[in-house]
Structures are given as structure tokens and as C-alpha cells.
């Protein structure tokens, strides 16, 4: 074996030495300051004009619990409608057919371009435009009977959500490599089957974080349905404080519930992400 050349002097062996811990003074000071500020805020609220006993008493009354159930039912149903519409509209938008493309773009333009609360009021007041609705000769009904607060809220929130979700879905579908479409075509798949079997499952991985975002937005957007008398959480909290004038206490009750629901949703989203990450990680199974 050939001997290695001699190493130069003046570069000592550091292998035995430990790396010292840094004191991080600034971190300690800033953390202490933040704790102080938080304590001051808590103290201010504790001494302020809030009867905390009302908060704890109303946190679990029946009307509030019904409100949170209605909120969640509406959020889930409207989101499902929104995702369904979003997928359909995204596929239309990416279709080679100019009619479908234009219709899809028009839908997104219209429902993204007007305030959600205005859309809710329009759906709820549909009876002013069409006193009776139905299919001529088959079925008809008075619009006031059909367009309940529930249906108006579902249509308003779901259709509006569809316009936003379609853009999220479109982004997801565009993120899938063109080679995937070609490989799907090469084994004889048509456009829709390739979308359903190959492209959408891959798009889901990209789409779940923004959809989680949208769903959290939806949970809170249901509170807008209080203006059309849908008995969701905020609407029920308002009804209570109209009676007992404990405005802030009941708003805090509603706020705590919204926070709780959103806190539960975040880990659920992580579970979903893991489900759709199949094949993307180099983990040995």
C-alpha cells in the first residue's frame, strides 16, 4: 500500500471536545415579556365587566349545543356540495370543449364576485322573485315553503364554496405531470377515467391542505347564516343574549366552541393527508 502524505502541522484534533450550550439571553427575555403581557391581558379580562359564571353556565346549555350541531351539519353538507361542484367545474374548466369551459368560468366569476352574505339573502328571499317554483305540469310549490333557512343556507354556502373549491381542484389537477395523462391514455383510458383513476387521486395530495383551510373557513362562514334565521351556533347565542343581555359572555361561549371545533379539525386533516400520501414517501412498508 502507498503511504498517505504527512498532514500539515497547526490543525489540532477536536474530536474529544464538547460543544458548549449557548445562554440564549434574548430568547429568555422575550419569552418573559410575552408571559407578562399575557398575564396582564388575563387580569384585565378577569377584572372587566364579564360575569364568567354566565360563560360556564351557558357553555353547555341545550340551545348552544343544538347550535353547534347545526353549525357542523351545515358546514359538512355545504362543504360536500362545494367539493362536488368544485370537482365538476374544475373538470369542465380543463375540458377541450369551449362551451363547458365558458360555463365553468362564468360560474366561478359570478359566485366569487359577489359577497356570500348577499348570496344567502338572495336565496332566502327567492320567493320575492318566484312566488311559486316547480316543474311545469309535474310539481309546484310555494317558494316560501321550499326555501327554508336550512335550504337557503345550504345552497348559498355550498354553491359559493364550489366556486372557490373549483380553483383549488384545478390547481391540484394541473400539478399532476402530463406524462401521467399520457400513460393513462396509452393503456386505453378515456379522459374521464384517467381523471378519476389516475389524476384526481394524485391531485388530492396537493389539494388537502388548502381544502382543510377552506373547511375551517366554512365552519366559521356558517355564522353568516344567522342573518337568514338558520339556528346555528352564533344565531342561538344571539337569541340568548337578546333575552338576558349578557352579550359578551355569550359571544365568548360561541367563540370557545368555534375554537374547539377548529382545534379538532387540524389533526383530522393530518390523518387525511397521510392517507393520500401513498407512494410519495420512500418509506419501507
Amino acid at each position: 500500500m502507498r503511504p498517505a502524505p504527512a498532514l500539515a502541522e497547526g490543525f489540532p484534533d477536536l474530536s474529544g471536545m464538547k460543544v458548549a450550550r449557548e445562554p440564549h439571553w434574548f430568547r429568555w427575555i422575550s419569552a418573559a415579556l410575552i408571559v407578562l403581557v399575557l398575564a396582564a391581558i388575563v387580569r384585565a379580562f378577569a377584572n372587566g365587566q364579564i360575569e364568567w359564571s354566565y360563560v360556564s353556565r351557558f357553555l353547555t346549555v341545550k340551545v348552544i349545543l343544538e347550535g353547534i350541531v347545526n353549525t357542523m351539519v351545515m358546514a359538512v353538507l355545504a362543504m360536500m356540495l362545494g367539493i362536488f361542484l368544485g370537482i365538476v367545474v374544475a373538470i369542465m374548466r380543463l375540458s377541450p370543449n369551449p362551451v363547458l369551459k365558458t360555463v365553468a368560468a362564468g360560474y366561478t366569476w359570478l359566485f366569487r364576485g359577489t359577497p356570500l352574505i348577499l348570496q344567502l339573502l338572495l336565496w332566502f328571499n327567492l320567493a320575492l322573485v318566484f312566488p311559486t317554483i316547480g316543474i311545469p305540469g309535474l310539481w309546484s310549490a310555494r317558494a316560501v315553503d321550499v326555501m327554508t333557512p336550512f335550504l337557503a343556507a345550504l345552497l348559498g354556502l355550498g354553491i359559493n364554496q364550489g366556486a372557490y373549491t373549483s380553483e383549488v381542484m384545478r390547481a391540484g389537477m394541473l400539478s399532476v405531470d402530463v406524462g401521467q395523462y399520457e400513460a393513462a391514455q396509452a393503456i386505453g383510458m378515456g379522459r374521464l377515467r384517467a381523471l378519476r383513476r389516475i389524476v384526481l387521486p394524485q391531485a388530492m395530495r396537493v389539494v388537502i391542505p388548502p381544502l382543510g383551510n377552506e373547511f375551517i373557513g366554512m365552519v366559521k362562514a356558517t355564522s353568516l347564516a344567522s342573518v337568514i334565521q338558520y339556528p346555528e351556533l352564533l344565531h342561538n347565542a344571539e337569541n340568548i343574549y337578546y333575552a338576558n343581555s349578557r352579550v359578551i359572555e355569550l359571544l365568548i361561549v360561541a367563540g370557545l366552541w368555534y375554537l374547539l371545533v377548529v382545534s379538532i379539525l387540524t389533526p383530522l386533516q393530518m390523518l387525511l393527508e397521510r392517507r393520500f400520501a401513498r407512494g410519495t414517501l420512500r418509506l419501507a412498508r
Binding site: 405531470d177 400513460a183 393520500f276
Partner: peptide, 15 residues
């Protein structure tokens, strides 16, 4: 279906 195609960049379905 009468032809099979093998691509330069494989294009296997990653999922």
C-alpha cells in the same frame, strides 16, 4: 389497446 407504449420517463402511476 393494440399498441403498448414505454416512455422515456417511465410515467408509472406513483400512487
Amino acid at each position: 389497446l393494440k399498441t403498448g407504449m414505454v416512455f422515456q420517463r417511465f410515467n408509472l402511476f406513483p400512487h
